[in-house]
Simulated scan of single mutants.
Amino acid sequence: MLEELGIKLPIIQAPMAGVSTPALAAAVSNAGGLGSLGIGASTAAQARQAIEETRALTDRPFNVNVFCHQPASRDVETETRWLKHLAPLFEEFGADPPIKLTEIYKSFLGDEEAFQMLLETHPAVVSFHFGVPAPEQIAALRKSGIKMLATATNLREARVIEEAGIDGIVAQGIEAGGHRGMFDPEAIDERLSTSVLVRLLASRTRLPVIAAGGIMDGQGVRAALDLGAVAAQLGTAFILCPESAANASYRQNLKSERASFTRLTASLSGRYARGIVNRFIEYCEAAGSPLPAAYPIAYDAAKQLNAAATKQGYGEFAAQWAGQGAPLARELPASQLVQFLTEELQAAGS
């Protein structure tokens, strides 16, 4: 699988939308791993620019990740209740809550412009989160020579990925930071750990498995390989790299005791995601709170509130995604981190 992806090391930098940058992806790829761009929240034009900037920094393969969620099902009553619930927080910072919410970014499932952009820019690897695209899109990407990965949180999703003709499965354990890759957010989430999920998928599917969730060092990568994975995907481990787009507040919290307290919450975006616990999460999950608006409608409200608070130097409403391994994060340049991971991996296997 590593040869198919064009990489030397079994290390993949997770495609964290809003945090990954061309500089980060290129640095990881140049060091022998697979760097990634998360373009799920970008327009096609923004994504094209990010791909071109990455290509200018490396001649090595890199991954481009897209969101394959079902478009939001609008519910005016739910959205109205959610905005009413958040109104006191807006008022605290002298801001008016929005009158209505919008679907702030498209799903790849209905974004023909993004699909054509990928065919034209032709990244070495494209990965899918929240589902898989249409068969004809998969066929077109395959015909162009692009390798494909997709996230699974359980065996059912893995089998859909396998049947779709995708090249590999990213097994996302419950420890992972950021959004759960569940295809159906209304389904029961078994919340399998990374180790259990990797063993399950390695033994029950034919596709190569990439472990994701809670992996922060070379020892963790070795454990994933021993469980049957062909590589490990690390996200939170790369947030403190100077090449990431994480802001000062995010970095400060990740280096503090707060990194030990992460929670799965749907309050920020409308879909479950793991992040550092803050006032927004605690407020929105207090007893009697209404259900948040659908994904990504709820994200519109959270982002507007965070923007108003940030102007006054208050960062307690930001989405600071992080996995359960966050206390193990190291502040290193990406290339040096990959080197350390490689040395730890080799030492763990000796």
Rank of each mutant, 00 (worst) to 15 (best):
K147D: 01
V230C: 14
S244P: 10
A171W: 00
D167R: 11
D217K: 09
E157T: 08
G181P: 07
M216C: 06
G145A: 02
S144M: 09
R199A: 08
L264T: 02
A212K: 00
R274G: 00
I239T: 06
G181A: 09
I146M: 13
L149Y: 05
E175L: 14
S249I: 10
N253I: 06
M148G: 15
E157Y: 15
T262M: 08
V221N: 01
G235F: 04
N253L: 10
R206Y: 06
D167C: 10
R191Q: 14
G228A: 12
D184H: 04
R271M: 09
F238Y: 05
N154K: 05
S144P: 04
V221Q: 01
A140L: 10
V221E: 01
P185W: 03
A140R: 11
I239A: 02
L192G: 01
L201F: 15
A237L: 06
M216T: 03
I239F: 14
Y250E: 13
Q219L: 13
S267W: 01
A140P: 10
G145S: 07
R251L: 05
Q219A: 11
G178Y: 03
A266Q: 03
P185Y: 15
C241L: 09
R204C: 12
R204M: 13
I188N: 12
G177E: 12
L207K: 15
M148A: 08
T153P: 00
G145N: 13
R156Y: 06
I210S: 00
T194G: 04
E186S: 07
L264P: 03
S269H: 09
S195W: 10
L200N: 06
S267T: 10
G220K: 02
E157R: 08
A232M: 05
R180G: 01
E157A: 11
A237R: 04
G145Y: 12
N154S: 14
Y250G: 05
K255T: 07
L155W: 03
Q252D: 15
A223M: 02
S193W: 04
S256N: 10
G270D: 04
K143W: 01
G228P: 07
G228E: 05
S195P: 03
A150Y: 08
D184V: 11
D217W: 10
L192S: 12
G177L: 08
I215E: 11
P242C: 13
A152M: 07
R271S: 08
